[in-house]
């Protein structure tokens, strides 16, 4: 059963993934507003990162990866834009020049052949070892989300203990500000 009130036309559109960059006033509660909007209206958040980017101007940049039909994505952008502390909403996916990266810290425990294999794979993925004991490593890896997915998947049988990801930070290519 569909979750909207009435069978709606836009549920027949297929969902797309979009990366949105939202420039906001860095004031208390602004993240709660953005997150509350997503949960309150039933939108998806696949990844969300937020950090102050321009200290003097009190600006923060929130990067959100979300999925939805084109009509829902348009709604999300309009709803975000409507929030009072939001300066602008840029859909990096629509501009077609999105540069998106994520960082992960991955703890792997193991000895013998598995340990060597993990190190070798770490090399191949350009992961750095940032902590080591005789029976464990912590890798730091940067890249697109699917690269990190893949690396985490490979570490699974080699003694993966736990990992932490930053979520996606994104910006547009080229000289212009997005």
């Amino acid at each position: 059963m569909n979750t909207t009130h009435y069978p709606s036309a836009h549920i027949f559109q297929s969902p797309e993934t979009h990366t949105l960059s939202v420039v906001v006033d860095n004031e208390p509660g602004v993240l709660a507003r953005v997150v509350g909007l997503f949960s309150g209206r039933g939108y998806n958040i696949e990844s969300l990162t937020v950090s102050e980017t321009e200290h003097e101007k009190h600006l923060s940049r929130i990067t959100i990866v979300t999925t939805g039909t084109p009509m829902v994505i348009e709604q999300i952008k309009n709803q975000l834009d409507r929030l009072v502390p939001v300066h602008r909403v840029v859909d990096l996916t629509v501009s077609g020049k999105v540069l998106a990266r994520e960082l992960a810290l991955i703890k792997v425990k193991g000895k013998g052949e598995a340990r060597v294999e993990a190190l070798r794979l770490g090399d191949a993925f350009r992961a750095r070892v940032v902590d080591a004991t005789t029976e464990s490593f912590v890798f730091e890896i940067t890249g697109k989300s699917d690269k990190i997915d893949e690396f985490v998947g490979l570490m699974g049988p080699l003694g993966l203990v736990e990992y932490s990801r930053t979520g996606v930070a994104a910006i547009s290519r080229g000289p212009e500000a997005s």
């Binding site: 036309a9 836009h10 009509m71 348009e74 709604q75 309009n78 709803q79 834009d81 409507r82």
Partner: peptide, 10 residues
């Protein structure tokens, strides 16, 4: 309100 447009009906 731009968010009212295309919310329910295209």
């Amino acid at each position: 309100d731009p968010s009212s447009i295309n919310k329910i009906i295209k």
